[in-house]
């Protein structure tokens, strides 16, 4: 297949950046999207040009590093997949593909398609954990967890923190990410003692990082490569409401 790529090129955080058109020739339908970019980059290097910078790590859809806006959809047109697992067979010969970085104030562009997602780390630092004084390892299954709760917690824990929810949201809101973190610990007995403080701290940290609010359009759950449901956002709102009304002032 031969493709035309319009790729966002930006030399650094302070550069204005622009879309540059490249021809991708002899692309195999079996290549992943990132492998296609690798081939384009080899051509660029051979011509003495700066290769397109993009994030990638595991290339098997579990690390959350890859982050491309492909034709206006995070991780491209295939549902429930990351960019590294998107294969070129989902495109047609002669297609023009626009590739952009995530756009959010909280995710500044570092170079080309690479954005700084450490805003997510700062949210986690505000409450995405449980505090346990470590001692001897407890026996396995010492704390009974109902199976449906364990399943729900695991659904939420499937979040890989890629930021597709923020990228897809018209408000660059991080609600789906934060709600997954709230739910993943909130469904488990170990998460109960800090449950109220956690949701308050996570929401405040999310706001402080400059993410937007939720309009309930549900583009986030549609874009999520791990298919985390927006139901968790309602659950977070419920937890926040209860935390707000409970306790001492």
């Amino acid at each position: 297949m031969n493709l035309t790529l319009k790729v966002w090129r930006q030399a650094g955080p302070s550069d204005r950046g622009r879309l540059v058109t490249y021809e991708a020739k002899h692309v195999s339908p079996d290549m992943s999207f990132l492998e296609m970019l690798d081939v384009v980059n080899e051509d660029l290097i051979a011509r003495g040009e700066d290769p397109i910078a993009f994030d990638s790590d595991c290339r098997e859809g579990i690390c959350g590093a890859c982050s491309c806006m492909i034709d206006g959809v995070p991780h491209g047109p295939d549902r429930g997949t990351t960019t590294c697992q998107l294969h070129m067979r989902h495109f047609k010969d002669g297609d023009t593909i626009t590739i952009e970085p995530w756009r959010a104030r909280a995710f500044p562009v570092l170079k080309d398609l690479v954005v700084d997602r450490s805003a997510f780390d700062r949210i986690i630092q505000a409450g995405g954990f449980i505090s346990v004084n470590t001692g001897g390892a407890p026996d396995a299954n010492l704390i009974p967890v109902p199976k449906p709760d364990a399943d729900k917690a695991f659904d939420a824990a499937a979040c890989i923190g890629c930021g597709a929810c923020v990228a897809a949201c018209k408000n660059a809101s991080a609600m789906l990410f934060v709600s997954a973190k709230v739910a993943h610990l909130g469904y488990l007995p170990q998460g109960q003692s800090e449950r109220d403080a956690r949701v308050r701290n996570l929401v405040m940290a999310m706001d402080a990082q400059g993410f937007g609010a939720c309009t309930n359009t549900y583009d986030c759950e549609a874009a999520c490569p791990k298919e985390i449901p927006a139901d968790f956002i309602s659950r977070m709102n419920r937890d926040y409401r209860s935390a707000l009304l409970k306790g001492d002032a």
């Binding site: 319009k6 806006m69 034709d71 206006g72 756009r103 993410f211 874009a223």
Partner: peptide, 14 residues
Amino acid sequence: ARPVQYAVKRPIAA
């Protein structure tokens, strides 16, 4: 929250 807009943005479920 989004000072720079996308050149191409397609709503998925919205």
